[in-house]
Amino acid sequence: MRFIMPLINVLAFLLLAPLFEGLLRRLTARVQSRQGPPLVQPYYDLLKLLGKENLNSAGTWPFRLAPLLAFASILVVVAVIPFGFRAGALAGRMDGILVVYLLTLGGVAVLMGALAGRNTFGLIGASREMVTMIMIEPVLAMTIILGAVKLKTLTLVAAMPFASGAGYGVSTVLMLAVYLLALQAFAGRQPFDIAEAEIELLEGPMIEYSGPNLALFKLSAMLKRMFYAWLFVSAFLPFLRTGIYPLDMLLQLAAMAVVFAVIGLVGATNPRLRIDQAVRYYAVLIVWALVAIGLAVKGW
């Protein structure tokens, strides 16, 4: 069973990520008094893109490798995480630091593609994407580290309850607040969709991509969003754990749907920030997350 779990993770995430995306789009539409697309629209989009022509404006290998790398790195993260509060066979050999680095690697792939694409808008988007990643990664890292500090381990097996491990303390509540405030940035949605900025930069880093390459990028973004929703559920909602594996998975998925609803609602009601405003906002979040870590070390 432990050896099938990574496979279950990958299948569940691959199959459900577009559905959550559909939920997000539907909700946004409803808030804006539109009908909105059907829930399964993202599946149609991906399938359509897979059948389209792959336009290559760079003609070099970094351009071709980038979407694959973005997809692969997030998929490895998905395979190793203890989804449904169960650690699979891979979790014992991986730890939180690796997860942070792999997520960064996925971001780097987006950047590499943008740089290879040579488009000026793409490069502006890439520059913003990297800045966002640098400023938001510490919050993600500290969410994982909070659990590590409390449980004295960084591995994914033992640190499964992450931040809420060893009980809810002041530090956990503080980190939860910080995570919620960073959620839109993790998901790359308004008011922090600064890198893609459709109206301003026309999808930024992805501008030169089309067809299957774009589908891979889109799918990895959906997977990433789903991972961040899962991390929230896993780190801060430990009471969803019943001990029955399928039930735990369902409960986590249901909670993740709620997280997506929050992302959708906040996204639909907030205008985009400028990158310099966002950077200052992230800096404040980092400071509060550091405070939470300090409290955790002190045993609060």
């Binding site: 897979l50 022509e53 792959n54 336009l55 404006s57 488009n119 030169e208």
Partner: peptide, 20 residues
């Protein structure tokens, strides 16, 4: 898996100029 997905629908690659 990514390579397989990219090829799964028989998509071809075409060289185009960068949009400026």
């Amino acid at each position: 898996l990514g390579v397989w997905l990219r090829r799964s629908a028989g998509s071809r690659e075409r060289a185009v100029p960068t949009w400026l």
